[in-house]
Design a protein around this nucleic acid. Structure first.
Lengths: 121, 121
DNA sequence: CGCTTTATAACGCCCCCCGATATACCTTCG
DNA sequence: CGAAGGTATATCGGGGGGCGTTATAAAGCG
């Protein structure tokens, strides 16, 4: 898990930054966070949570039984907090780089003035 | 390829935003762009380029032969430009969301003071 | 002659996506 | 008042696609 986080994972950590949440509740929180762009399905969510716990970025906070259903609350570990901070910085740099270069972009999809050596094959 | 772009792909598009570049040259440009964090290997690079061409986000600009070696230059297509712009916006929103929530975070990795039957709302 | 530059090819991994399943309340309706 | 169905919550397994890696080819240059 030292690869850059993918969007679902990133949003899960982001959701957990404020306060511990239980799995199913994260589905709604991530949807809200992402303006309903990302709607996690159970398979995706719990798979990601398991990996995050294995990686030590997320810890089980507590378990409650509400109406006979188990609720397992997760919280960000210190490592998870550090990772989220670092990932946010990485993304911020990427956004900056892209923004800069988009501003400098050649206006053209037109082929550049043909150079001597080789036209297209 | 309608999944969110991953980092290598995103940086390749970013590199191409300013001017057409040939495959091998992109390795250095992406490294520079990312402050040497991302160093693409040929397999990753050309695989990504093939996918990008298939998806219509990148087009072959021209081919040159320099010192007997083929250089194939790629450029961003209009669709690629639009995709890169959209992806940059998506990332910007995610960065914003994470930044906001990191600022609001609970100071605690310590277990929350145990409540009897589910205090927090 | 070997190193550098450029492109190609094949293989495995891991995360994500989805669909199906289990369970125990709660609601609704006969 | 009892049975059927719905909802909230968690688990399991299968599959795909981008990425990483490593090996290979070919042609100049020092």
């Amino acid at each position: 898990m030292d690869t850059p986080l993918r969007e679902p994972t990133f949003l899960i950590l982001t959701a957990l930054a404020v306060e511990p949440m239980h799995g199913y509740g994260l589905i709604g929180e991530v949807a809200a966070l992402s303006d309903n762009r990302v709607s996690l399905r159970p398979g995706t969510l719990y798979g990601a949570l398991d990996r995050l716990v294995d990686a030590g970025l997320v810890e089980v906070d507590r378990e409650e039984v509400v109406d006979g259903r188990l609720r397992r609350y997760y919280r960000l570990s210190p490592a998870g907090d550090a990772t989220l901070t670092a990932e946010t910085e990485r993304l911020r740099r990427n956004v900056e780089a892209a923004t800069t270069r988009l501003a400098e972009r050649t206006r053209a999809a037109r082929p550049i003035t043909p150079r001597v050596a080789g036209g297209l094959a």
